[in-house]
Nucleic acid binder design. Structure first.
Lengths: 202, 202
DNA sequence: GTCTATATCGGGATAGAC
DNA sequence: GTCTATCCCGATATAGAC
């Protein structure tokens, strides 16, 4: 693979990411992706034979960019409260840097659950270790008795939703002031940690 | 307007809702909507001149079906903790009955924020009363000092996300067992209330 | 109001020159 | 590897009969 080739392929993938992430598979236009990449439409087909293959590449990339750092924290051996704090902090940072990823994944996963979830599984998600660890903490009386799966869903909700629903929340609560909403999101790193920890304290 | 007309128009709107809510504006096909309504494609254009007008009708409907009950609780005069409990209970019930609405609104709002948010505003959302009320409770020391906007976002997150992200969560946490996930959602009515109230207790 | 037939158009995909 | 030109299908939209 020549340098030129690698650059073009990379340019296409980045352009396609931007377009797919905003518009979704159905809403994205090959022409728009080509324009965004500064190349001709036919070149898309040269590198990725059709729209679907290009989409899958983008979907896989979005997940791979997303999971590793997160999983690393979840599987680390630090104490439970500290782990939650670190996870929330790190996860929200990644989300703020990739604001379109959550909606994209949720929307497309709803459109074609089975096929796309396969891509997910291949990336290796495995919450069972955290669940066992949390259950042990409950038994030791370190945390309030709450189903760890509810806790997981709660934490993900509190991190992801404010990013995914930004177009609505920013308008309703902040008069569509982008700066104010960014500050609000930054605050949340601490607010969510505190909220969760208060909620599960015995 | 004859009875027949009203029925057909209604049938179309209901069919269109199902299709748009699942597939989104870009993914929905007029043919599919016609099939779903058991009528001819041309009839869609007879009642709603084009796809966009049909879509807007569905979007407006989705919002109108959604907001009134919620707003009624938020604007009622009951005490703050009780209000939160009622809101969470009622909101989750509506969400469970209309599981596709959240993703639909979020996705479409991201695609065309300004135009679609107008529909939202027309329906009359107004959180400022609740915000003032909550700030008063903070001053009286009834609740922990937390920015009410964070609380609003937290509550909405905890209610909406588990529904919107069901295709993912059900697979990751429940081995894609639909029954188990429904039970999980039912549990959440109480779990979320408890979680939130614990989190904001002084 | 409802149907069949058809026009029109946009967009994904391909052929082929360079 | 990159471009221009073009094909072809699917989907929206319209015309017109009943």
């Amino acid at each position: 693979m020549t340098d030129q080739e690698k650059n073009t392929e990379q340019k296409i993938l980045e352009a396609a990411s931007r377009v797919f992430l905003r518009k979704g598979m159905a809403g994205a236009r090959m022409q728009e992706i080509a324009d965004e990449a500064g190349i001709n439409k036919s070149l898309l087909h040269y590198y990725y034979r059709n729209k679907d293959k290009l989409f899958i590449s983008v979907f896989r990339l979005a997940i791979q960019d997303f999971l590793p750092g997160i999983l690393h924290i979840l599987n680390s051996g630090i104490p439970i409260f500290q782990k939650l704090e670190r996870f929330i902090h790190e996860y929200m940072r990644v989300l703020i840097d990739n604001p379109f990823v959550p909606m994209f994944i949720l929307h497309e996963l709803q459109r074609d659950p089975d096929r796309l979830f396969q891509v997910f599984k291949d990336a290796g998600i495995e919450p069972s270790r955290f669940i066992k660890e949390f259950e042990a903490s409950v038994k030791k009386g370190e945390v309030r008795n709450i189903d760890p799966r509810h806790l997981i869903v709660n934490v993900l909700s509190l991190c992801i939703f404010p990013i995914a629903a930004r177009p609505m929340m920013q308008r309703v609560l902040f008069d569509n002031d982008a700066r104010a909403y960014e500050a609000f999101l930054k605050e949340r790193e601490a607010v969510v940690s505190e909220f969760v920890i208060n909620a599960i304290q015995p």
